[in-house]
């Protein structure tokens, strides 16, 4: 085991049962998440990146099932465990405290009839009851860390914009200082200006609190701006993994190359290029 490994995914296989037989969604993935890094997982829809995330978090639901492999998790100050082999009770004790999740479409992940403060309280008391006394100071501090006013504590989810909700969830995900936060498409469906705020806040999580982040996104711009290393998934396999600069500058796999080349960039105007053949 490398000293700096936080998560080691070995030969992970996740299949979906369908009426036409089993379909592999994750097909033999080996991937290591290093302590303190931001690891990006890139790929288009159907590449298996979201399935990989839910399997890692043990949130996989039928008809999906783990067909093989292991996920070794080495939380700080605790014995190493295989996330896939562990029972529900033990898993619950890890959630939020060691391993937390920033779900896709955070808009729907909050309880609409509870104030933000109460939602924090629920999570903290459920998973770390010994912190009851710190609640009053802890929640405003967490909100400030993601650039929100403490007044947000008293607000209901419908009073918050999409970007603010996303940041509330981000604050919640780091409330119990987990070793690992998995963010699934954290900027999808947000406006660009807010995307930038979210990316900045995610970077702060790592820089200021040493959280290890796994960021799943189909947007190569997000990876270029945020992550240290990036793993590119295609048809259930990790086709390339490496330092983000290396992957962008010298992609080894043809799929990675085409993925990067297909992004329109401001400053390069293909419409001046007369080589493009008109249709007729």
């Amino acid at each position: 085991m490398p000293d700096d490994a936080l998560v080691e995914i070995k030969d992970l296989r996740v299949h979906y049962r369908t009426t036409q037989g089993d379909v592999p969604a994750v097909d033999g993935v080996d991937l290591t998440v290093r302590r303190g890094e931001i690891l990006g997982i890139a790929g288009e829809s159907g590449s298996g990146k979201s399935t990989l995330a839910v399997a890692l978090l043990r949130l996989l639901r039928a008809p999906g099932y783990v067909a093989g492999g292991s996920i070794d998790f080495h939380p700080s100050g605790q014995p190493s465990v295989d996330l896939l082999a562990m029972d529900e009770r033990r898993l619950r004790s890890l959630r939020w405290r060691s391993l937390s999740y920033l779900p896709q479409g955070s808009m729907n992940s909050m309880n609409p009839v509870m104030r933000v403060g109460e939602q924090f309280r629920d999570v903290i008391l459920e998973h770390a009851p010994e912190r009851r006394n710190q609640l009053a100071t802890m929640v405003p501090r967490l909100l400030r860390q993601v650039g929100l006013d403490e007044g947000v504590v008293r607000m209901y989810p419908h009073e918050l914009s999409g970007g603010m909700k996303q940041r509330v969830l981000m604050a919640m995900s780091i409330a119990l200082e987990p070793d690992l936060v998995v963010a699934d498409e954290p900027t999808t469906a947000l406006d660009v200006t807010i995307q930038r705020v979210i990316l900045q806040s995610l970077g702060d999580l790592r820089d200021e609190f040493g959280v290890t982040l796994v960021v799943i996104s189909h947007d190569m711009g997000v990876h270029a701006q945020l992550v240290d290393r990036v793993a590119v998934m295609y048809e259930g396999k990790v086709v390339e993994v490496g330092d983000v600069r290396q992957v962008f500058k010298q992609p080894r796999h043809p799929y990675t190359r085409s993925l990067i080349e297909s992004i329109p960039r401001i400053g390069e105007a293909p419409w001046r290029d007369e080589k493009r053949s008109p249709v007729a």
């Binding site: 399935t51 839910v54 639901r61 039928a62 008809p63 896709q104 699934d184």
Partner: peptide, 10 residues
Amino acid sequence: NPRLRGVAGA
């Protein structure tokens, strides 16, 4: 009504 349907994995 998909909202009542058992949610499939991602």
